[in-house]
Write a protein that binds this DNA or RNA. Structure first.
Length: 725
DNA sequence: GCGGATCAC
DNA sequence: TATGGTGATCCGC
């Protein structure tokens, strides 16, 4: 999403935190002083304002201390530090990797754009999307008035009385995001979503394959309705200056340019080239065709640079840094450090106090920084100053905490506070249960009416997850604070509860390895939450239902609220899709059928069975179970085997059968020794999209096909799960 | 492990 | 009428 308000030069009476961010697009011809004055007058005297002033002064003191420290540094210390820094810089330089092509894609004013698309009346009006207190994003119209993300609605209204504020509609944004991500997946099946509107891709492999592609694979139809308009240019905001070679490399329009006779593409189609910029242009084009929304992108040898680049020609533009050291250095040279992700308001101020505002200045003074900042910090600074960044997009799979917090009007009654605390615990417990998480640390967060924030934590020897367990801890933490404040009441404006210290995934490894790990699947490591979230049963069931109904698709309908995910496959089935009436599930542990239960109940049963130990369970693999026969969740037929390996193989083949039918490539013999691995990371719904040229549906994004000698059963991810990726 | 801060979206 | 929610990380105890 759009960045928070950033720094701008602050004149008399103004402060960095309220100054307008003038480095964004859409501010042309704006009277910044006037805007700042309005913001100032509206804020002045408020509790919020007072607290911001206080925080600002704290930073001032921090800077003061730093400068004192700096004054005590000797020439010799500095020389020594210099040597150390140069050595490290040389090491880093040796390791510089320019071989990857990393792309950062960012949807333009995403929420606002979605709302405008779906409500044409908003098109010409200044509008913003947000909740009561805070705006998430504004359209470019509104930005001209100084209205932007992270601004409270009432101030925005003062700046722009005609502003239309639209409430969030996250379900819709998630749905649009899912469409966009389908396009991403074609360029990098392992892409890394940052939020609903942002992602990193490594298109190195895509480009390697793309070089050998015929034009037909790089040809994309123009939306039929307004093909002419789409072909006219890139919308209202043409690509900005700086996208230098854009024109020369622009897609050829076949509308009125009859090209070579051989195999003329269909009318109203565009063909893109084979290089990185063309691939990214194509991706943005497809996103726009699909969603009517524009995206901006940055192409660079690492994530840090790609992120900066995506901002450069926003909106609806792209920018590339060639994979050459000198090009990187040239780009970095005058880059304001604030543009770099991770350098925020405070860091910017601290560095500015040392006369560092650009990356070259940063490079110049790293030795000094190594004496004033922690090792982690100055290493980071050095990397930035060299234009280095991660070349390898990887997901932080493991969730480390989960929390709920709420802001409200002043609350001073202890009774109310306890009630609220319980409510928060209840909500949190529910969320924890959805991901089957249990943690050892409970933290309570309090913000008083003066905006002062406090957190109080307690770590237990055992894990907690239920409302009662969490509340038992949280209420004590709260009580301590209430007691401490007495006889005055706590005058709160916010309360939050967090659980962290989740049990290590290691503890669950044994479960994963067992058959149950396979059957449950849960979240697939390395995939975003929304793609791996459904259990194997749910997905198989969906697939079967779809087949029976002869329509629909088996995809997960959307992601959960946050885009974070866990590498630790849940040991519980996800509860979202209850089994239909009459569904029977066979517990893979005790082999008894569980009738008429939803997946959550079924899972609870399985959990109980497992935790009951070996006494009831026939054995880890359950191969010798003597219960009822297993039912294939795909074809829904009882299988004449109790051997889970055989059962798995049947299901596997069953699934492949479906894939092949979906792809229209005929049935596969059930005896064939082919696994879903052949379709690797493919998403089946891409395979039968009628709009794409034929041949395009063959997973060009997936690295290599086949080599599946033998179905490796019982290992999730190699067979059935691959199908769903 | 705790608490305050910083940062991103 | 009066400035958000979620998650991560770092630093100094």
């Amino acid at each position: 999403m759009e960045g928070q308000a950033g720094a701008a030069g602050c004149g008399e009476g103004f402060h960095s935190w309220m100054a307008l961010n003038d480095n964004k697009a859409g501010m042309e011809g704006l009277d910044r002083d006037k805007i700042n004055k309005i913001i100032m007058e509206t804020s002045k005297g408020s509790k919020f304002y007072e607290n911001e002033l206080k925080k600002e002064q704290q930073v001032d003191q921090r800077i003061e201390r730093m400068l004192q420290q700096k004054a005590q540094i000797s020439e010799q210390q500095l020389r020594k530090a210099q040597a150390q820094v140069e050595k490290m810089a040389a090491d880093l330089e040796r390791g510089r990797d320019l071989g990857r092509v990393i792309v950062h894609v960012d949807m333009d004013a995403f929420y606002a754009a979605v709302e405008m698309r779906d409500c044409p009346e908003l098109k010409d009006k200044p509008m913003a999307v947000g909740s009561k207190g805070m705006l998430s994003t504004s359209n470019y119209h509104a930005r001209r008035f100084g209205v932007r993300a992270a601004m409270p609605g009432f101030i925005a209204k003062k700046l722009c009385p005609g502003l239309v504020i639209v409430q969030h509609n996250f379900e819709k944004y998630r749905a649009v995001s899912a469409e966009v991500r389908e396009v991403f997946a074609d360029y990098d099946p392992h892409f890394l979503p940052v939020s609903l509107d942002e992602a990193y891709l490594d298109i190195t492999e895509h480009l390697r394959q793309r070089r050998g592609w015929p034009e037909s694979l790089r040809t994309h139809p123009v939306r039929t309705e307004d093909a002419a308009a789409a072909a006219d240019g890139e919308g209202e905001q043409p690509e900005s200056q700086g996208d230098s070679d854009a024109d020369s490399l622009s897609p050829v329009l076949f509308e009125d340019s009859p090209t070579s006779p051989p195999d003329p593409p269909p009318r109203g189609a565009v063909v893109f080239g084979t290089d990185a910029e063309e691939a990214v242009r194509e991706m943005r084009f497809r996103i726009e065709q699909r969603t009517t929304l524009t995206a901006s992108a940055g192409i660079a040898p690492n994530m840090m640079l790609a992120k900066v680049c995506s901002d450069k020609n926003k909106p609806n533009g792209q920018y590339r840094i060639p994979a050459e050291r000198q090009a990187v250095m040239d780009f970095i040279q005058d880059l304001p450090i604030r543009k770099v992700s991770g350098i925020g308001k405070v860091t910017e101020r601290m560095l500015r106090a040392l006369e560092i505002t650009t990356c070259s200045e940063l490079r110049q003074k790293v030795a000094l920084l190594s004496l004033l900042f922690s090792e982690v910090s100055w290493h980071h600074f050095l990397q930035i100053s060299l234009g280095l960044g991660s070349t390898h997009i990887e997901r932080d799979n493991e969730r480390k905490s989960m929390s709920t917090e709420r802001t409200f009007g002043e609350m001073s009654s202890a009774e109310e506070q306890y009630d609220l605390c319980r409510e928060l615990c209840r909500d949190l417990a529910q969320d924890l249960q959805k991901e089957d998480l249990k943690g050892k640390t409970v933290t309570v967060k309090l913000k008083n009416v003066n905006f002062e924030v406090k957190t109080r934590a307690s770590t237990l020897s055992s894990v907690v997850s239920s409302e009662e367990e969490i509340f038992a801890v949280a209420k004590d933490l709260l009580k301590t604070e209430i007691d401490n404040a007495s006889p005055h009441p706590l005058r709160l404006r916010l309360m939050g509860v967090r659980v962290s210290g989740f049990v290590s995934c290691e503890d669950r490894k044994s479960l994963q390895k067992s058959i149950i790990g396979f059957l449950q699947a849960g979240r697939i490591p390395g995939r975003p939450a929304e793609e791996g979230q459904q259990s194997f049963f749910q997905r198989a069931q969906a697939l079967r239902l779809r087949r029976e109904a002869g329509r629909g698709d088996p995809r997960d309908p959307g992601d959960s609220a946050s885009s974070s995910s866990s590498s630790c496959p849940s040991s519980s089935l996800q509860p979202s899709a209850p089994a239909g009436p009459g569904e029977l599930f066979t517990c893979p542990v005790c082999f008894r059928e569980q009738e008429g239960t939803d997946l959550r109940s079924f899972n609870r049963h399985v959990d109980e069975c497992l935790s009951a130990g070996g006494s009831e369970a026939p054995g880890k693999a359950g191969v010798w179970g003597s219960g009822a026969p297993l039912t294939c969740p795909v074809c829904n037929k009882k299988q004449d085997t109790r051997d889970l390996a055989l059962f798995n193989r049947h299901v596997d083949v069953c699934l492949n059968q479906d894939v092949l039918q979906e792809l229209g490539e005929g049935p596969l013999s059930h005896s064939a020794n082919v696994t879903a691995t052949a379709w690797g990371k493919g998403k089946p719904e891409n395979g039968h999209s009628p709009t794409k040229p034929s041949g395009k549906n063959k997973r060009h994004g997936s690295p290599h096909l086949p080599a599946p000698k033998k179905a490796k059963v019982l290992v999730p991810g190699n067979t059935i799960d691959r199908f769903f990726r």
